[in-house]
Nucleic acid binder design. Sequence first.
DNA 1: AACTGCAGCAACCGCGCGCAG
DNA 2: GCTGCGCGCGGTTGCTGCAGT
Length: 309
Amino acid sequence: MRNPSSKSGKQGAATIEASKTTPCCSKVGLKRGPWTPEEDGLLSAYINREGEGRWRTLPKRAGLLRCGKSCRLRWMNYLRPSVKRGRIAPDEEDLILRLHRLLGNRWSLIAGRIPGRTDNEIKNYWNTHISKKLIGQGIDPRTHKPLDPAPLKLASSSKPKDIDGHNCEPSPVISAGEEISSSSQVVVTAKDKEIARFEDHVEHNADHAPSTVYLDVMVTGCDDGHGMSNDEEDLNCYGGDDVFSSFLNSLITEEAFPVHNGDSAIASSASVIAFTASSSALPLRSDCGSGMMSSAAALDENKTGNSQA
DNA sequence: AACTGCAGCAACCGCGCGCAG
DNA sequence: GCTGCGCGCGGTTGCTGCAGT
């Protein structure tokens, strides 16, 4: 933990210049910057006693000179008992990569699928580790596609490496090069067409509730990474999330993290297709997760993340 | 030993969504 | 339908600690 007594640039300056900025909530007289052990203790004790929620009024009730947002963030990212501290394991890293390829920068969703990890932690890890590795490999960390399309044709001669630097077959999305004719690539191309059809379907039905619902569910899943126990929420997600859960779980279990394995990567693609096909017919609830984006936005994001040319 | 540069990560900010009145 | 409030999310900032010189 950072030294609480240290002066912080942005944070300290913001305190000084509180009147200049437009605070999200009244910060006049509120403490900012690093948390002290005493504050942590107060917050933990209060939440253990009274439970989470009502963040706006929590600081006052808990005797803290912090804004509710700050308390929530501290609890979610650091104090929660379920938060796992320590280094991200290679399998977790692989799962993050996988989920990011599927979900994009939906850190809370990704975090919800990795027990004990927070969205902030995953986001940080992505930006500081994985993103750089991918860039180093010539892969756009945002789209998971080659930064320069040209090297695609070299894929067969120089195998790409996974994030750990191991040799591996190109992952389907990354290598969605339609011109490549290896057997695995043929399958990938078919997958891409399937996804394109799915997107097309969504686009044409953007105004209709069913598509809205299933797209939202696909994008949001169950936001169980925040404000609740991961394990419990995984189990308690209502029926509609089952499809999404099993789909995401399939990424975890079926593939067992072999990014390097082209076949399993294809299996993942098949899961995408299977999921999109099956979920389109299901009357799923769509209110899982408070940060849910609109279907249109989801569509845009989905296209950006999965089939950007 | 002192200095510099960089990586890691905790914390802040603004925005958007859901909901109640 | 409109408005305000509470909350959650993603992007960004900047301090800390460590490695390299």
